[in-house]
Amino acid sequence: MRVLFAAGTQFSFPRLDEAVLSVARERPAWKLVYQAGPGASLQRFASLPNLQAQALFNAGEFSSIFDNADLVVTHAGMGNIMACLEQGKPFLMLPRLARLGEHRNDHQVDTAEAISRIYGVPFFPDVEPLVEAVLDGQAALALPAAPAQRIRDERRAFGKQLNALIQQL
């Protein structure tokens, strides 16, 4: 199984580092890629042959890694969430927490809760249950059906309103 872990483009995310390391040790046959975020210390990932880690991949590289992944584990950033939902890619979320200094506020928790409520995608407040869910690959892959139609409908309605607004501004 190919799993992409993504900590986003703004900061490193030590708790996601831990999750990646646990999965890499437990599943030597899997192919893991980790975008660890700017400022992440990458030495600790170097010794694991089943893991390719980099602070940031450029946009082209990232999208081909994304396309090839069977499962995406994200920090609950909107870029990954939108791409996963649009493409029907199974994903799990570990939102950043303000109290651990992982972000300026808890908007990623709000995002994860909202996306989970609307689209039924699981999110995890802690690393351990997240790791268990990833290791149990079957469960992670058995996520709700692709919500593409719903997204298309939302956007068509939004576009209509936006174009009307722009004419009035």
Binding site: T9, M78, G79, N80, I166
Partner: peptide, 28 residues
């Protein structure tokens, strides 16, 4: 990042004759 991802999707919804883009992270 996520803001850019939303902006790109927004442009697809809008009828306009010409568009230009400002962003950050030229290296990425």
């Amino acid at each position: 990042g996520g803001h850019w991802a939303q902006l790109k999707r927004l442009t697809e919804l809008l009828a306009c004759d010409e568009r230009e883009f400002v962003s950050t992270a030229r290296e990425q």
